[in-house]
Amino acid sequence: MRLQMHAVRFTADQSLLDFIQAKLDKLDTFHDRIISGEVFLRLEGADSNKVKEKIVEVRLMIPGKEIFVKEHDKSFESATDRVMDVLKDKLVRFKEKRSDISSPAIAEATSRVEEEDEVFEPDEL
């Protein structure tokens, strides 16, 4: 997956960026059609001298939808783990909705409707 990372108003360590990349690469197991993603790393309270919390925002682009998740925690690693949990759930739910369209129950119902809507020729009436 093509992933762009942005550290807002600070310079992120390469090991942190590698950690986030490795975590988000695992999302391909839950949805195989992820086009790209953006990660924003922010420090809450960066204007003052004390950083209160660290914020991780992830935007994933998949065909037909854009998924956005924002989580905060004491460290970027734990916030990334929380983002991963939410993204997994959202990707699985989205994929299930897409696969429901082609489920056997829906196919059977549409075929029944098509059988009921048969067109009668004028000679048959």
Rank of each mutant, 00 (worst) to 15 (best):
D85P: 00
L43A: 06
F10M: 03
E115G: 00
E66H: 01
E38H: 10
L41W: 05
A7N: 04
I20W: 10
V51N: 10
K88M: 06
A22H: 13
E77F: 06
E57Q: 14
H6Q: 15
I101C: 01
K50T: 09
V8Y: 11
H31C: 09
A12V: 04
A46T: 05
P63E: 01
E66G: 10
R33V: 12
D81W: 00
K23V: 06
V69W: 06
A46K: 11
D73T: 00
K95W: 03
H72V: 06
E44G: 07
A105D: 14
E77W: 00
L24C: 04
D117Y: 08
E53G: 03
V119D: 12
L43D: 12
L27F: 08
F68V: 15
G45F: 05
P104T: 03
L17S: 09
A109S: 15
E108S: 12
I62S: 07
Q14S: 13
Q14C: 00
M5L: 14
D89M: 13
S75G: 06
P63T: 02
E121R: 12
E53K: 08
M5W: 06
D73S: 10
R9K: 15
I62W: 05
K23D: 04
E96F: 04
S102I: 08
K23L: 02
K50F: 12
I101P: 02
F94K: 02
V119R: 08
S48W: 12
H72C: 06
Q21H: 15
K23S: 05
E38Q: 14
S103I: 08
T29V: 09
L16A: 02
I20P: 09
L43S: 07
E115N: 08
L125Y: 13
D73R: 03
T110G: 02
E53C: 01
D32H: 12
M61V: 12
K70R: 15
K65R: 13
V119C: 00
R98Y: 11
A22R: 14
F19E: 01
S111V: 09
V69S: 03
E71M: 10
I20T: 05
L24A: 03
E114I: 11
L27V: 05
R93S: 14
E44Y: 07
F120Q: 12
R42F: 07
L3M: 13
E57N: 04
R33G: 08
L60D: 04
S36Y: 07
D81M: 00
S48E: 15
S48H: 15
D32P: 06
K70C: 05
D73V: 00
K74M: 06
I101S: 05
E66N: 09
A79Q: 06
A105S: 13
Q14N: 09
M84P: 04
F10W: 07
F40G: 04
R112K: 13
F76P: 03
E124V: 07
L43M: 10
